[in-house]
Computed example of a mutant assay.
Amino acid sequence: MKKLIGLFVIVFCSGLVRGQVVAIGIRGGISIPNLTAGSGDANPINTGYSSRLGTEAALFAEWKSTERFSVEAMIEYSAQGGKKNGLQALNTPPEIVAMYPAGQAPAYLYADYKSEARLNYLLLPVLAKFTWKVGNTPFHVYVGAGPFACILVSASQVTGGQSPFYADPAGQQPLPGGSQSFDHTQNIRKELHRFNAGAEGLAGIAYRCGKSAVFMEGGGNYGFLNIQKNSQNGKNNTGAGMVALGYSYQFCK
């Protein structure tokens, strides 16, 4: 983390030395991530996720070649993951597998509980941006897109609720034993790949006053690589939408 921030500062300062138009800024807002099943890898475990809410924050520098075109580099914290609420599949626990003759235990059981995958990444996007002034007003609109590399900061699986196990996805065949507690938090970082890469895009509107600007933007990112190390339960890709507010200051004229 410290090395990444140091590299960011060095590149920013080099732009100042060369006399380029350089702006630096911050933004913060809401991340709306989800998990999608990899192509051909769909199964009851890695499908059925819906979006969760998380935090989005970034520090960025923007190098302007012209009034219309610029390159923006960011250090971005992005909450990723997804959630499931209600009847859902889980791998058959070993104690239940032991109740069946060898090789006859079902691969999945079902239960009615809450489950949330909380994944937090540090992204390093580099975006090409195009900006247009809105008439003679201080407002500007812009779009940007480009690749990113990222590193997994933390990952946990949080479950909660009580439910019996069911032998069918409709929840009509409860197993003996009554309700079980699903209140548990598990660190799953070692089960996931540490690195990923993908693409990010955004669009926004900015109000400029002198060298300062305030802006509102929305966009999204998507990781191209599957996140799981083990493909036993299928594979997933991460992605998130975001809405953010921010401020930037221009250092060179």
Rank of each mutant, 00 (worst) to 15 (best):
Q88G: 05
L109G: 01
D112G: 07
G246Y: 03
V71D: 08
S248L: 00
W63Y: 13
A61P: 11
K235M: 08
G86I: 05
G234Y: 13
F12W: 13
P125T: 06
G28S: 08
E56C: 07
G144A: 15
A244N: 02
F182M: 01
Q173D: 10
I5Q: 07
S50W: 05
A37R: 05
L53E: 09
F195Q: 06
V214W: 03
G177W: 04
N43W: 02
G234K: 07
I45T: 07
T92W: 01
N34F: 06
Q20A: 11
A170Y: 08
W132E: 01
P106F: 02
G178S: 14
A240D: 01
L123H: 03
P147E: 06
R18A: 12
V71K: 02
E200F: 06
L16W: 12
K229H: 15
A167H: 04
P94A: 12
V97K: 10
V143S: 12
G223E: 11
K211C: 10
H193V: 10
C209K: 08
K190P: 15
A128L: 08
V71H: 06
A79S: 12
A128C: 12
I24F: 03
Y108D: 06
Y77T: 03
R27I: 02
T55W: 15
M216P: 04
S231K: 14
S181D: 15
M216L: 14
S156Q: 10
L109A: 03
Q157I: 03
G219T: 00
S70M: 09
V97R: 08
I151Y: 13
F195I: 09
A117P: 03
M242G: 01
P147F: 09
Y222S: 13
S231R: 14
A111D: 00
A203E: 00
F224G: 04
R27Y: 00
Q20C: 11
E56G: 09
S50G: 14
V214Q: 08
E67N: 09
R189I: 14
S154R: 06
S163N: 10
Y247K: 07
D41K: 15
G19L: 08
L175I: 12
P106K: 10
M216Y: 10
K114S: 05
G241I: 09
V22Y: 00
Y247H: 12
Q232L: 14
I96T: 09
W63I: 10
P93G: 13
S179D: 15
K114N: 07
Q104F: 07
H140Y: 06
L90I: 09
L123W: 06
G81A: 14
M74N: 12
L4G: 15
N226Q: 12
I188Q: 07
V11W: 13
V134T: 03
A117H: 06
Q180T: 15
